[in-house]
Design a protein around this nucleic acid. Structure first.
Lengths: 216, 216
DNA sequence: GTCTATACCCTGATAGAC
DNA sequence: GTCTATCAGGGTATAGAC
């Protein structure tokens, strides 16, 4: 808890949240990712990680304090590395219907279609009680970023007539996330399929209807 | 897989989905529920279940085929027993704003505030890949019931001007479920709290705005 | 730093007494 | 049916050679 699990490295440390990672640590994390994302925390053995990473068990323990330390380092890395800036570095159109549709497109292509997203979300939810700091990191990194962007847009566009931007942003992204959960995790695709297009169209008609009311 | 894990009993078997459960089985399931919901599937040992239930390990194995069989029987029981008919046996007002608000109230009081709901959802999502049949059962029993009710209501009220009832129903319940996930599981309550009232008000203003557009 | 070997504990599942 | 006792295997973590 008090010492970092990472040793020194020649790689430049850009900021506190992405520590330098040596080639061996990289190798360990790659193997650990495959096993943890597939088998969960308790279902993963350090033996399996060592064979999957192609290093001995002791090598893992020399780089990471213990199983928990390895797990935390891995989840932080995957979360930050994959989803840190999906909603930040883009250029956005100002037209509401275009902006909202672009936002959903980013979510589906950069997040939902990322093959690591579903296993990561599953794992973070499963371990949210044992590793609350990882759950909070995920909420800040992935969910909160998109909501902030949408809230700011609502604030800049009073003509949309959005009474409670935070609530509407929560509903907007909640609908997207829950659609992925129901369709992909709970096998809704097989049982009650609902295309992304229909979801997005429904979502946009709801949000943009506020504007039309104001106009009339 | 081919034989039922339940033995005979004097209790009347009402239907295929709720088999008779003897007093000993009840005792085992009670203990198993506490352990599985708290520690997950892989994190639960049969030793722990036996001590928690106050029976020997062999007694468990005489009533249930193995760990998987016990887990399936337990999750089916909790899912069906707690959430089978939350959206079925109620009387509903016809007025749209009242109906929608009642629907959210049922969800929050009967589902979200049920102390078993969050651990159950967490467990089903965590094991959705290893136990797909349980994930499907959950989707049918809990999520699909509410959506059906809302879809029927939209069909009976064309004046609401809902273009795609299935999509709107998915958005509606998706927003409710994801609010619980973000606020309770991902510690949104501590980081970016958003009250249920604000969520519900936002949701209702979105859905009812469709109607106002039609009127004008 | 990295390996092999191993200590020590707990796992799911079973055998046999009563 | 229910118990105690036990099996073989795998769990995390560590010791010591190189």
């Amino acid at each position: 808890m008090s010492q970092t699990p990472f040793s020194e490295s020649t790689t430049l440390v850009t900021n506190e949240e992405s520590p330098a990672v040596t080639q061996k640590q990289e190798q360990i994390l790659q193997g650990a990712m495959r096993v943890f994302l597939r088998s969960g925390y308790a279902g993963t053995s350090m033996d399996r990680v060592s064979t999957e990473a192609g290093v001995s068990k002791q090598t893992i323990y020399s780089h990471f304090r213990d199983k928990k330390g390895l797990f935390k380092a891995l989840i932080e890395r995957v979360t930050i590395g994959n989803f840190q800036s999906v909603f930040c570095d883009g250029e956005f159109k100002d037209e509401p219907s275009v902006f909202l549709r672009d936002l959903t497109t980013i979510f589906f292509t950069k997040v939902a279609d990322n093959p690591d997203y579903l296993p990561l979300l599953r794992l973070i939810l499963a371990e949210s009680e044992n590793f609350p700091e990882l759950a909070k990191l995920y909420a800040r990194t992935v969910i909160q970023q998109g909501k902030k962007l949408l809230i700011k847009y609502f604030a800049d566009h009073p003509e949309l007539n959005v009474d409670d931007p935070e609530a509407i942003a929560q509903i907007f992204f909640g609908a997207l996330v829950s659609h992925v959960i129901v369709q992909e995790m709970l096998y809704g695709k097989e049982m009650v399929p609902l295309s992304r297009d229909r979801l997005v169209n429904g979502l946009m008609s709801l949000v943009l209807a506020q504007q039309k009311n104001k106009e009339s």
